[in-house]
């Protein structure tokens, strides 16, 4: 070990900024270099996504346990979901992930018009997703399939009373005991998709802000971190849906 100094002393030369070169305006002053800032913020975003993984992890655990326990109820419950809307929503969300990725690319290559367009498309697709989700939710509300609020077992104990679904799947009536557990399915359905939708709503709100700032040209001068990190968030929400879709909609679609 060499014996050179640790260059710290009781000197009071505060603010003696060791400015070895000009900093871009968006560099926070406690970082030494802009690379350090970008590295740090992107790493922080990844760590935040880890917490999100674990947050949804609790829901997935609950889902897996009850799906194993009450498989017939989960099948009957999933038949109540509209596969057309579900698939459409998956496609919408994947496309929005694509436009978001394009937005990041536009920011990186400093294409302001492209960035604003991509972000607007992403926001639009996000809103379409939420719109479709609300159509699906209202179907459940009409059929009294919201747990805890006058939950109705009729579609499960007497499937023929629900011709729309019955014509497709010809479900056998469930015993009352098992039919009651469809409430658990819908409880998890609403908890999981609701939590996902909440993330979408937050994402859309941030997107609005991003569009506003992008319009002002804030992200096309080299400061891409915020757009990139939001992109990570948006793709993460997409991934959650990629798992929710088969788990909730596609349990067993064959007759």
């Amino acid at each position: 070990m060499s014996d050179s100094t640790v260059a710290v002393s009781g000197a009071q030369a505060e603010g003696a900024h060791s400015g070895h070169h000009e900093h871009p305006p968006y560099q926070r002053h406690h970082f030494e270099t802009i690379e350090q800032q970008m590295d740090a913020t992107s790493f922080a975003m990844w760590l935040f996504l880890l917490t999100e993984i674990m947050f949804f992890g609790g829901l997935f655990t609950a889902y897996l346990i009850y799906r194993n326990w009450y498989y017939p109820a989960f099948v009957a419950g999933s038949h109540q979901l509209n596969i057309f809307w579900g698939t459409a929503n998956t496609a919408v969300l994947i496309t929005s992930s694509f436009t978001m990725a394009m937005g990041v690319w536009c920011a990186q290559t400093r294409r302001k018009g492209g960035l604003v367009l991509s972000l607007c498309l992403t926001l639009l697709l996000g809103l379409v997703f939420l719109g479709i989700k609300s159509i699906e939710y209202s179907e459940k509300i009409e059929k009294h399939h919201v747990p805890g609020f006058h939950y109705s077992l009729r579609s499960f104990t007497d499937p023929a009373s629900d011709p729309e679904i019955y014509d497709q799947y010809h479900d056998k009536p469930l015993a009352l005991d098992m039919a009651r557990h469809t409430e658990m399915y819908f409880g998890l359905y609403f908890a999981m998709t609701g939590m996902h939708a909440l993330h979408m709503i937050i994402g859309c709100a941030i997107l609005g802000y991003l569009i506003f700032r992008a319009q002002a040209g804030d992200y096309t001068t080299g400061h891409v971190t915020f757009v990139e990190n939001f992109g990570l968030y948006w793709h993460f929400v997409d991934i959650i849906w990629i798992f929710l879709f088969p788990l909730l909609y596609l349990i067993s679609r064959h007759g």
Binding site: T90, A91, I94, T95, F98, A101, M102, P246, L250, I251
Partner: peptide
């Protein structure tokens, strides 16, 4: 991105088909 997006859409169709 275009390739990846297309793959994702194809796989979505695939998984719906497989569930039947």
């Amino acid at each position: 991105y275009i390739i990846v997006g297309t793959i994702l859409l194809i796989f979505t169709a695939l998984t719906v088909w497989a569930s039947y």
